[in-house]
Design a protein around this nucleic acid. Structure first.
Lengths: 196, 196
DNA sequence: TTTATAAATGAATGTTTGTTTATTTATGGA
DNA sequence: TCCATAAATAAACAAACATTCATTTATAAA
């Protein structure tokens, strides 16, 4: 029997991400993807059940990859400050090195697909973070607040900073770009907020 | 000459928001909107130049309304804590009372339309906030940090909390809902972070 | 070398898309 | 009352859409 062309499959994956990010979910279609990846539309339906399946699979792949990267070198028994620093650094590095994935994920999180993927993929991260948070509170390194409050303070500013970076957000004309100093400055404010 | 049916026009606006929020930009079409608002597709092209114009206008309307509400009772010469508190309260109230608008805006901010609208409508808010921030720094009520860092700490957590609320985000099953205590708790951490 | 089988395709399916055109309908001002 | 004019429409348009079908192509195992 004939074997699957792995190179072709990977190209489809790449181009799908590219098209989704540059033209939005709105302007994305199977035919455009097929053309961009030099593949027959019918081939896409060998790889994926349908359009929804394509996007869901893409989300899962990059979602788990992102969680893996975020938790690289992480141990829930680290000190709170050390652990949070490591996660910020890991995420920032990954996103800056993989802007397509970063933007795709940001996009995806604001579509109906989000729920399906978040459910499956956040579980691991959520679990680790719950242990980490509980330990930190017990060691008196972290204020005791509901999970959602903690999350909103600990990570929302990082996401926002990255969005600013990719949008080149500016204050009265001066464009904004990421720097380690900016991250460090923001992170230290966050840590200050979360100390008991 | 015949006069425009204002009621019909407003219904179109309402239904457009509803469809966009429930089915996403993806699943939105002029024909669906026409059907939902009991109007001929051609009528939409009397109200709006094209689909892009429809969405842009919708964004502008709700964008300026949101800025107005946020700045209700605000004065850039308020103390920093008082001013930030007021803005958080204003935004939270508006979003909880107008979930459709809130979700629409969240959605919109992750599409190519975003840039067009943000440019025009954020100007006023940005200007007021710049004065407010400068004053607060001079009075030694606010740390001196780049605008983007300030923004990421001061508002990103609020946005995140609202998203959690609308998604019913949960930790191990318990669903999350907004409460004034939760907001107060988060806001006080934010203020702690931003104090010099 | 042959054969069975999955990969890959080009062309077509019927549907939905955004938008326009020709026509009818309502109404403020003459 | 009647007329000019804009509102509103039903029906249509080509283009783009997701998906399928009949067929060809490549290859692992026999």
């Amino acid at each position: 029997m004939r074997t699957r062309n792995e190179h072709k499959e990977q190209l489809v994956e790449e181009k799908a991400l590219e098209l989704l990010v540059t033209h939005g979910f709105d302007g994305f279609s199977m035919q455009k993807l097929a053309k961009a990846a030099n593949v027959s539309p019918a081939t896409l339906y060998i790889y994926y059940k349908d359009k929804e399946d394509l996007i869901t699979q893409l989300g899962m792949i990059h979602g788990t990859k992102m969680v893996d990267v975020t938790l690289e070198g992480f141990d829930p028994h680290m000190s709170f400050e050390e652990g949070l620093r490591l996660q910020w650094r890991n995420r920032a590095r990954y996103w800056l090195e993989n802007p397509m994935e970063a933007k795709f994920f940001d996009l995806l999180s604001h579509t109906p697909y989000h729920k399906v993927i978040a459910m499956k993929m956040n579980d691991r991260f959520r679990e680790v973070m719950t242990v980490f948070g509980r330990n930190a509170v017990e060691k008196n390194e972290l204020v005791r607040v509901p999970f959602e409050v903690y999350w909103s303070i600990a990570f929302a500013p990082l996401y926002n900073l990255i969005r600013f970076h990719f949008e080149g957000q500016s204050k009265g004309g001066k464009p904004f770009t990421w720097s380690d100093e900016i991250m460090e400055q923001t992170l230290s404010l966050v840590i200050k907020a979360l100390k008991p």
